[in-house]
């Protein structure tokens, strides 16, 4: 299979240029020009205005917290799953993808029902004589929504790298005198770095840029950077400003991509 099928790649190359490269170029074009078409950095520096900076700061804060929580929840789970020795690798992936077959907006909305003042969770807490919690329409509800929506994207890459670790390598570590704590920190954790990086990327980027979760669970008061950009496009119709803020957002995404390229050269941490 050599030069003969060089032309085979042309449909995909054409498609990528048309629908990936050029559109990204357009964002840069709009982001770096004003309404008259003249070059300007104003749309980028607009991030420094109090309103935008606050939204970006809140987005960063909530997405980092969510990513950390996802990691802490997912790592033990991925270890448990990878130790189960289920032959059915695909089954494990399936149970995490299955929820996606129920619309993600509805699933997120369902948390309203669960979290409401007289909702399911508070009723249970009440029944157990525990203090109720009132987190709906607060940043906490947004964090919960983020963790809920993106947790599978952390579990799957971790599960993937952990289940690929050779059992013999762990035996070798024990054989050389290492206890389970030592084996975890010196062998398992370093070997799972590609999965960790990939998981962090898969959670952090959508959490940082979401506008849906904040709309559904945060009430209308809490604005994330995603909400600001979305409004510039759908309500204010200031595409230049929206594009400029998107470029700022992409800087964070690119930083994340560079980090994952450094740590995961082999692409071992992929989700599938």
């Amino acid at each position: 299979m050599t030069s003969k099928n060089k032309w085979l790649s042309s449909p995909y190359i054409l498609w990528s240029v048309m629908f990936i490269i050029i559109p990204l170029g357009m964002i840069f074009y709009y982001g770096l020009t004003d309404k008259t078409g003249a070059f300007t950095l104003e749309n980028i520096t607009a991030i420094a205005t109090a309103e935008h900076a606050k939204a970006l700061w809140l987005s960063l804060l909530l997405s980092i917290i969510s990513t950390v929580i996802c990691f802490l929840l997912a790592y033990p789970l991925a270890m448990i799953l990878s130790n189960m020795k289920v032959n059915q690798h695909s089954f494990i992936i399936l149970i995490f993808i299955l929820p996606m077959w129920m619309n993600f907006l509805l699933r997120t909305l369902a948390w309203q029902t669960l979290l409401e003042k007289n909702g399911v969770i508070n009723s249970i807490l009440n029944f157990l004589h525990l203090p109720g919690m009132n987190i709906i329409n607060t940043p906490y509800a947004i964090i919960l929504g983020m963790v809920y929506n993106f947790l599978p994207f952390m579990v799957l890459p971790l599960y993937n790298v952990l289940s690929k670790i050779d059992e013999n390598v762990l035996d070798a570590s024990r054989d050389l005198g290492a206890g389970s704590v030592h084996t975890f920190f010196r062998i398992i954790l370093p070997l799972s770095i590609p999965g960790i990086i990939s998981g962090i990327t898969m959670v952090f980027v959508p959490a940082l840029t979401t506008f849906v979760i904040s709309t559904l669970l945060g009430g209308s008061k809490i604005l994330l950077i995603g909400n600001v950009i979305e409004q510039e496009f759908t309500q204010a119709s200031n595409w230049h400003l929206g594009s400029g803020l998107s470029i700022v957002l992409m800087i964070f995404i690119i930083l994340n991509m560079i980090a994952s390229a450094i740590f995961d050269k082999e692409g071992e941490g992929s989700m599938l």
């Binding site: 050779d166 013999n168 390598v169 035996d171 070798a172 570590s173 062998i187 370093p190 070997l191 770095i193």
Partner: peptide, 9 residues
Amino acid sequence: FQKYALFTH
């Protein structure tokens, strides 16, 4: 070990 089980990292 059979397949060496070296620590690749």
